[in-house]
Design a protein around this nucleic acid. Structure first.
Lengths: 373, 373
DNA sequence: AACGGGTGGTAAATGCGTTTACCAAGTTGA
DNA sequence: TCAACTTGGTAAACGCATTTACCACCCGTT
């Protein structure tokens, strides 16, 4: 019962030196302030006793706890963006840190409490993450606390990590154009209200902007835009169903997210239109869903894990005032029909796509191994 | 810069008492060892200065850090069982604790490191969670460390939290029987190998046992069993496709999980068989997926959040040697056809279902509001 | 002989809150 | 009046690792 932990004093005693010496030897840079023999004896004692420093005690003195706080609205544990936390966890581990994870549900009271709780534990820094990339208010903090906004922005803190939505939007268009789609393209979901909505805006506005710019630059246009406030499967279904019942010149669907696309699949199926043969669908997010669909859904992924890693990397660095945009991977599965790719526009789009992929180093991810069968 | 934190000494000075007094007043039970006035002055000072105790310093003395370690193989951040961590987080917050979350990928080296890391931070206890409920080996730990196994079992530690799979299995059968299904029931996925597999066994074996017992007790039998090692959508698709092409007396599918069911939906759709009208499907897990399907999938849910909550509750209690089984909610959506319910077997099944739901207090969850349209 | 400069260390203070041991002054009770 | 409590409170130790300030000793100079 309660076998006392091995302390530095124990190590010192066994090694026949003072605690001071033991501490200096264990932490000091490897200069030879002490005899080689003292070094040996101390390390020997550490190994023998299985000594591990008490991080709390150390933090008391050094103000470094090797612990970081990860405070999110609701992102941490939701399928929506669990990758954020996974990436952060991974990078924290690499850096020898450990993560306190808290959720606040966007409730200001809980947010304040969460900040207090992690500060009370002397964290080395705090990552604030949100599910929907957005402007987030952060409770008052001591000047000296390092902060990174993850999938969120905040005027007060310069360091934030966001997906490169503008480029992602362009990629989606290029994907279609490069496959030869120059006509019959419909945009599904985009809604001006949503775009202006403070909550989703940071992300959606840029995505749409990239989308439209690329269309324009390639000389393309949408033949229709079906908009909806919510972006759930049922909306995708309804929008697509009515679209297909109304007109017969639809060749490609650009869906604002995978859940909309999922609904679109259902509508197509019902009408005997087979995705990947009679019609192309491209969307955003790379939800788990996307791989399960038949045929596999080609989508522009949210790089959650990479973002999480980047956030922790930034937090532990000294960098200040950065807005880091993380590239969105192009995940090609089997929902895009290949048409005639010889047109000028198609070639141009393919070039841009190639160039972009080379730049982000993102080989087409997991090209539909699952679900494309 | 580096605005020094307010310490207890500051509070004491402002209140005109010794740190001892301040500490005793702030922590002591509300007995009147000290004058009412001293109480008032101390609390006043705390409020004025915004004092918050340094948890690390306190832990040094008291060995209680109000922090718990949550170590999982890979569960924490995966859609598969993120509910576990969410529930744990919730309950920890309620209890004024905070959670260190670590992942190990089942790598023994990382597991040992993780245990070391949380112990170094003086956690009050450790929750070990796994994605697949199974026997898990835990690195050596000091006797005094409180441990709870979550969705896992370990011979050495008496306290574990698991889903009540046996009862869940029975519920699935009852659901079908109560809707009048007494013939044409097929089991999809179940595989003897899987059942014996140490990894999935703890959960699957009990589920299957419940399933079969209930069938037997109601005098029912499967007309076929399609087994598969993997339980992914593509397997569900292949299994169901071949089944439907082979025989025409299939009226109900009992799928071992939602992903299999998802594949089954696709196979049915392809053949013009509409789920919820021509055929019934019931499965397990209550994946996100289940709500997206059309019609909504009726499924026996894994009570991840409740399990997470229960784990933390047990961890912070003094209880020892418990295996807590958490009831699996019956999530009724629209994938089950209602047939003639007047048979004896149907009535018996309905009774059991009712009784069980009353017992777990689980009203049919979210009865298909989404996806059932 | 006295001084400057390494070499190889250590005692003690520090960070912060809790806890033990003790104390002074006032009350009671006999 | 004196011993025995009570009341209201404090000094100091403690938990553990880091860090500052200092020391003893030896060597080589001048």
């Amino acid at each position: 019962m309660a076998v006392r932990r091995v302390t530095l004093a124990d190590v010192a005693k066994l090694a026949g030196v003072s605690p001071t010496t033991a501490s200096l030897i264990l932490n000091g840079k490897p200069d030879t302030r002490f005899s080689a023999d003292a070094h040996r004896r101390v390390h020997q004692a550490v190994a023998e006793l299985g000594y591990r420093p008490n991080i709390g005690a150390r933090a008391l003195r050094t103000d470094r706890s090797l612990t970081i706080g990860f405070i999110s609205d609701v992102v941490a544990t939701t399928r929506f963006a669990s990758g954020l936390i996974r990436g952060a966890l991974e990078e924290a581990e690499n850096a020898g840190h450990v993560m306190l994870v808290l959720e606040t549900g966007s409730d200001p009271t809980r947010e304040a409490e969460a900040v207090g709780a992690v500060l009370d534990r002397q964290v080395d820094g705090i990552v604030f993450a949100t599910m929907r990339a957005r402007e987030m208010v952060v409770p008052a903090l001591p000047e000296s606390t390092r902060v990174v906004m993850l999938n969120a922005t905040n005027a007060g803190f310069g360091v934030s990590v966001l997906p490169d939505e503008e480029t992602g939007g362009r990629s989606a268009v290029d994907l279609l154009a490069a496959a030869g789609h120059v006509e019959g393209i419909v945009l599904i979901g985009q809604n001006d209200e949503v775009e202006r909505d403070l909550f989703r805006s940071a992300t959606v506005a840029r995505r749409v902007h990239g989308l439209r710019s690329e269309m324009a630059e390639l000389g393309l246009g949408f033949i229709a835009e079906e908009s909806s406030w919510d972006w759930e499967p049922e909306n995708g279904y309804a929008l697509t169903a009515s679209l297909l019942d109304r007109r017969d010149d639809v060749r490609a669907l650009l869906c604002m997210n995978d859940r909309l696309a999922f609904g679109a699949y259902q509508a197509c199926q019902e009408r005997g239109i087979v995705v990947g043969r009679d019609i192309s669908i491209v969307s955003f997010d790379n939800d788990e869903l996307a791989a399960y669909l038949r045929p596999g859904l080609t989508t522009i992924g949210l790089p959650h894990e990479a973002m999480g890693r980047e956030a922790v990397r930034l937090l532990l660095s000294q960098e200040t005032a950065v807005e880091r945009l993380v590239g969105m991977p192009v995940v090609e599965r089997a929902s895009v029909v290949t048409l005639d790719r010889t047109s000028d526009r198609a070639r141009r789009a393919q070039e841009r796509l190639d160039e972009r992929q080379a730049r982000t180093g993102s080989a087409p991810v997991d090209a539909g191994a699952r679900g494309s069968a």
